[in-house]
């Protein structure tokens, strides 16, 4: 009896996890007229919603491209400077290190919605509205602390002998870092890159505030505004199709790198 109950509970939670995905994918392949059908599979299958997503005027292709630009540039810059900071925090001894670590944690807790109020004023006055940098720079407010914290934990777990050996062989500290530590740390850096990419790709508040030009909007913002784009029918079909398109890159990343992502997520929390 107890086992049955447990089984039912687990089944309910798995359904809770999966049904929204399943319904999103299935509904995205229905015709607009069939959008409320309850058949487990679309009949007939249709690409109408996908055609709707890429209709002229919705600019969704451009929006996906904008999302990619913002997420890739943010991730790249974040990794470049975050790796250096994390190395110093993990390996070098200096005064004020604990303060810096505490500050990194504190700023990562700061709500993005509060950040954008003053930043919008600033960016308006320097003409940055509707620019990529107006999304990229604020996105670093959450991507960079995440990166630094994750990599710091990761670097700490690596054996110290690595750099010692390199430095005995005559490498400078920076060379030891670049030629010895970084290659060994590549998996951790890579995992952190995926995490940074996912959180930036999903970002909504900054993008919706800093950009009002349709040509510069990111995909998450564009989906929210589909309501106005579909004139003839409820926009659920296009929203589902767009949802599939926005989520696919992330699901692929998760499928391929599940183990590494899990390891990255638990870094610092589990010893």
């Amino acid at each position: 009896m107890k086992r049955v109950l447990t089984g039912l509970g687990v089944a309910a939670i798995v359904a809770y996890c999966l049904i929204p995905f399943y319904w999103m994918v299935v509904s995205s392949f229905r015709r607009t007229a069939d959008i409320y059908h309850q058949t487990p599979l679309p009949s007939p299958w249709s690409l109408e919603s996908y055609a709707g997503v890429f209709d002229e005027g919705t600019g969704f292709g451009q929006a996906l491209l904008n999302s990619a630009v913002v997420a890739v540039v943010t991730t790249a810059v974040t990794l470049l400077i975050g790796t250096l900071a994390a190395y110093a925090l993990a390996r070098l001894d200096f005064r004020g290190k604990n303060v810096i670590l505490a500050l990194i944690i504190a700023v990562s807790m700061f709500p993005g919605a509060l950040l954008v109020v003053p930043l919008l004023k600033l960016f308006t006055s320097i003409g940055w509205i509707n620019s990529y940098q107006a999304m990229i720079l604020p996105s670093m407010s959450f991507a960079l602390p995440l990166t630094v914290w994750n990599l710091t934990t990761f670097f700490r777990q690596m054996p110290r002998e690595l750099e010692h050996a390199a430095m005995i062989d005559g490498c400078s500290a920076f060379d030891a870092f670049r030629k010895v530590i970084l290659p060994v740390a590549a998996p951790g850096v890579f995992t952190t890159a995926i995490l940074a990419f996912i959180v930036t790709w999903n970002e909504f508040i900054i993008a919706v505030t800093m950009v009002n030009d349709v040509d510069r909007q990111t995909a998450t913002v564009r989906i929210a505004q589909f309501t106005g784009a579909a004139k003839f029918a409820t926009p659920f079909g296009t929203q589902m199709a767009a949802g599939v398109l926005v989520t696919i890159p992330l699901v692929i990343l998760v499928l391929f790198f599940q183990r590494r992502i899990v390891a990255g997520l638990t870094a610092g929390a589990v010893k």
Partner: peptide, 13 residues
């Protein structure tokens, strides 16, 4: 996998 996909899906979607 199902859980990780739900985690990675944008809040918007």
């Amino acid at each position: 996998l199902a859980a990780m996909a739900a985690w990675a899906a944008p809040a918007m979607t």
